[in-house]
Design a protein around this nucleic acid. Sequence first.
RNA 1: GUGGGUGUAGCUCAGGUGGUAGAGCACCAGGUUGUGGCCCUGGUUGUCGUGGGUUCAAAUCCCAUCACUCACCCCA
Length: 430
Amino acid sequence: MIQSLKGFRDILPGDVEVWQHMEMTARDLFEDFGFKEIRPPVMEKTELFKRSIGEETDIVGKEMYTFKSRGGKSITLRPEATASVVRSYIQHKMYAVEPVRKLYTIGPMFRSENPQQGRYRQFYQINAEVFGIASPLIDAQLIFMLMTFFSRLQVKDIGAHINSLGCKKCRPEFHKALSVLLSKVGDSLCDDCNKRSLKNPLRTLDCKVTSCRNALAEAPAIVDFLCEECTEHFDAVKRFLDRQGISFEVDKQLVRGLDYYTRTTFEIQTGLLGAQNAVAGGGRYDGLVKALGGPEQPAIGFAVGCDRLIEIMTLDKKAYMKNPSVFVAALGTQSMDMAYGWVCELNNIGIPTEMDYSGRSLKSQMKRADRMNAAYVLIVGEEEIKKGEAVLRDMNTKEQALIPLNSIVDNLQKALKIRNTKHETRNNIK
RNA sequence: GUGGGUGUAGCUCAGGUGGUAGAGCACCAGGUUGUGGCCCUGGUUGUCGUGGGUUCAAAUCCCAUCACUCACCCCA
């Protein structure tokens, strides 16, 4: 038997409905906030990711699906979306047409890590990116939109964590201070952190090894080294979050794993997913557009981990399943022949209708209709054909009505309309 | 890449110290000769993850391998 690849999985009917709901919620919300969808390809030149994410990061260093194309070019299955969106923004000179762009994208990402809870090799992200706005207003608004997204999906047990990583002006100062400490406590650090302290000292801050945590307990905080502008920016973000009633925690240890982040960074964490506690993360990347060959343009964005989000949604899956409105129970070839015509027509006008295709007993057809949760069963057999009337059974009330064979479709349409309005009024009253 | 746990029917799982498989649910049929949910009766389904080894005999013991899972690492 051929199985799917390790870390790659099928999302099956029954689960897909929840995914659709999540995606619809995201689209509606993001478009309310002025975002437009963009769909970049899933493959890019390897160079794009090396230059944006950073050569020394784990993602680029050991997690990318990289291979040679037939022409010998190095290409990579995207490990994240921001790089592609920025590339596209530059390639199509979007900045020239309209200075401010708000874009979102939904799709699969690929990283070759060992799978575990909330982590797959093909995983899905919803990304939102804003170009051309330097103001802290957008930082706060983006976090506000993200939190609204979670609340619309009724996700609980989450909290926002924010930090500022400074800019190219103030970060070197901090690096210096941190490096001094690192070289002092080098002996008590783990092997990884010793490597990090040379290549990417920032990363030592979120090491989970206890000895490192202890050694770095007195580590300087980036926020204490921020330049005047960065401090102002960070304070403003916090103020605007407060203003919208968004509760958050300033987390000095919050360092992002991608090199391009500057200033505001944030992560939405949950306690429900074990080690994979980040359901969403993002931040500002003011230097990236220029670094990839575009003009100097501020930018900020976030990514939501869909697979993880789905796991903590704990919604009633059944609520999202679509059930047939009508099941046509036909007995005998002549009835099946007629049923076939009605089913096609009803399907065509948007009424989900099912029938039995193998000529089984009425009892088993009723059973199937019941299991499928059909609202109505239309029964047609020899008797009905003789009388010229079919039996329409309401599966909830068990009421049965006779309807003429020549106006089946009209009658069903009417019956379902009445039923739907009943539902609507009931929902409105609630 | 590293470590722990698991792998038996479509699903959830039983199968002390070796004797070639079972339950519940699901599915199908019947009871009710044309009416669903409850009930009763019967039925179908397995290369016991895969490959090798020990043995008269392996789901059971040994080795390898794969997959799943959790954790490290890292991240969404």
